[in-house]
Design a protein around this nucleic acid. Structure first.
Lengths: 121, 121
DNA sequence: CTTTTTCTGTAGCATATTCTACACATTCAT
DNA sequence: ATGAATGTGTAGAATATGCTACAGAAAAAG
């Protein structure tokens, strides 16, 4: 089970969005809030130890890349929510979201199309 | 924004499921894993300080009851996931869940009925 | 080659989270 | 009334999380 702390997720989001390798200064530039170089490198060190990123030396600097996929992390978090609130039922989770969140008619039609694509698999 | 730690959520789940007031020994009896009385009471103390539960003295013992509703906590967690993975879009979150989780035809029909009920609100 | 800049690595600190240990208070049976 | 059982409160410890500070190595500029 993937267990990312809030600080680690912030870094992973930047890496996921970019896709490829990034140097710490590049990550810092796209970071959603001001973060000091040393604080960012601390999170990268943890992510490296946990195996969620890899790095490659280029000259004196390192370039980091996400290893743990975004979708796998998403599924892990979704499963945790399903466990907590719906005894592990993904359908229960989705049902509650549809009931709770106000969706536009267009969004509902879009979701129905996606569901039809999955039917019968 | 509701911020419950994993340990706090474990306790809230028991209180939510039961509904009414519970003494620590009652909570302990329904707890999904062995937990010492003192450890449980520590979590209850934190939940009390944060205002997520109330308690009422009966004789020498206290009875605890959930204040923060289950659904509000759920919405808070769902919003966090939508923020992290879909820029805050609840529809994006639901769409990804439908794509990712294998649902039976029955479950999909059930979801469509729920969605129809929400249409046009 | 020397100085400056940039990046890394390590150590240390502050807070949060979770649990344990022990002393004290209240109730109940005798 | 007195001892046992049960419940409470506080203190302390272990780990996790997030950040800062500083020394040293590699690269760049003069």
């Amino acid at each position: 089970m993937i267990n990312l702390t809030p600080g680690e997720i912030e870094v992973m989001r930047v890496l996921w969005e970019h896709g490829g390798e990034m140097s710490p200064p590049e990550i810092e530039a796209r970071f959603p809030r001001p973060i000091k170089n040393a604080a960012l490198r601390f999170q990268l060190k943890i992510l490296l130890e946990k195996g969620h990123v890899t790095r490659r030396r280029v000259g004196k600097a390192y370039f980091y890349k996400a290893v743990t996929p975004r979708q796998r992390t998403f599924k892990s978090m979704a499963r945790r929510m399903a466990d907590i609130f719906f005894g592990g039922s993904a359908a229960g989770l989705i049902a509650e979201l549809i009931k709770t969140e106000k969706l536009s008619d267009d969004e509902i039609r879009e979701l129905e199309n996606i569901a039809k694509g999955n039917t019968g698999q």
